[in-house]
Design a protein around this nucleic acid. Structure first.
Length: 157
DNA sequence: GCCAACGTTGGC
DNA sequence: GCCAACGTTGGC
C-alpha cells in the first residue's frame, strides 16, 4: 500500500555530452547511475514509479530543460558503486549496505523548444524562492519540483 | 579554462 | 567538533 497517491515531480540533471535527452529517447529506459550526493540520493529514494521528471542539460551550450521523462522504478542500489573500473566506484560502499541508490528513468518526450536556464530565471517570481535549481550556488543534480512549478515551467513559451 | 559555491575528508 | 584543504559542479 502506498501512502502517497498523488504524482510528484522532479528535475534531474545530466551533461548532454555524457547522456542527453536524445540518448534517453534512443534507449527508452536508463538507470540513473552516478549520483554521489546524499541529498540527491535521498530524493531518489522517495521517488515513485510514474513521477514526472524534467530532463535538464547541465554543462551544455545552452543549459535548460530539454525533455520530459518519468520515474520507471523504485530506488535500488547503483551497481556502478561496486565496479572497480567505473568512475563511480566507491570503495567504502559495502554490498550488504550499499551507500548509493538510483532509479530507472523512462523517456516520455522531447520538448520542441528547450526551457532555457535564462528563461527559467526570468520566471523566478512565478516559480518562487524555493525552486532549488535557481537558488544561488545550488549544485544538486536531482531536485524536487512542485506541481505548481511544473505547470509554470511547461507553460512557458 | 576560470572560478564561485559548496560538499567531503581528515588532522587535530 | 572545528576547520583547512581538496574535489566537484556547473555557469560563463
Amino acid at each position: 500500500m502506498s501512502t502517497r497517491t498523488s504524482k510528484r515531480y522532479w528535475l534531474m540533471k545530466s551533461e548532454p555530452e555524457d547522456f542527453s535527452i536524445d540518448d534517453l529517447a534512443r534507449v527508452g529506459v536508463e538507470p540513473w547511475t552516478g549520483v554521489r550526493n546524499y541529498q540527491a540520493r535521498n530524493f531518489m529514494r522517495s521517488m515513485k514509479i510514474g513521477d514526472g521528471v524534467l530532463f535538464y542539460h547541465s554543462n551544455a551550450d545552452v543549459p535548460g530543460v530539454y525533455g520530459i521523462a518519468e520515474v520507471a522504478s523504485a530506488a535500488y542500489p547503483d551497481p556502478t558503486q561496486f565496479e572497480r573500473k567505473s568512475k563511480y566506484f566507491d570503495e567504502k560502499s559495502k554490498r550488504e549496505e550499499p551507500r548509493w541508490d538510483l532509479v530507472d528513468v523512462r523517456y516520455v518526450r522531447t520538448l520542441e523548444r528547450a526551457i532555457t536556464l535564462d528563461a527559467i530565471r526570468a520566471q523566478a517570481d512565478a516559480l518562487g524562492e524555493d525552486f532549488a535549481l535557481i537558488r544561488k550556488g545550488n549544485r544538486l543534480s536531482v531536485l524536487p519540483v512542485t506541481a505548481a512549478q511544473w505547470k509554470v515551467l511547461l507553460s512557458m513559451k
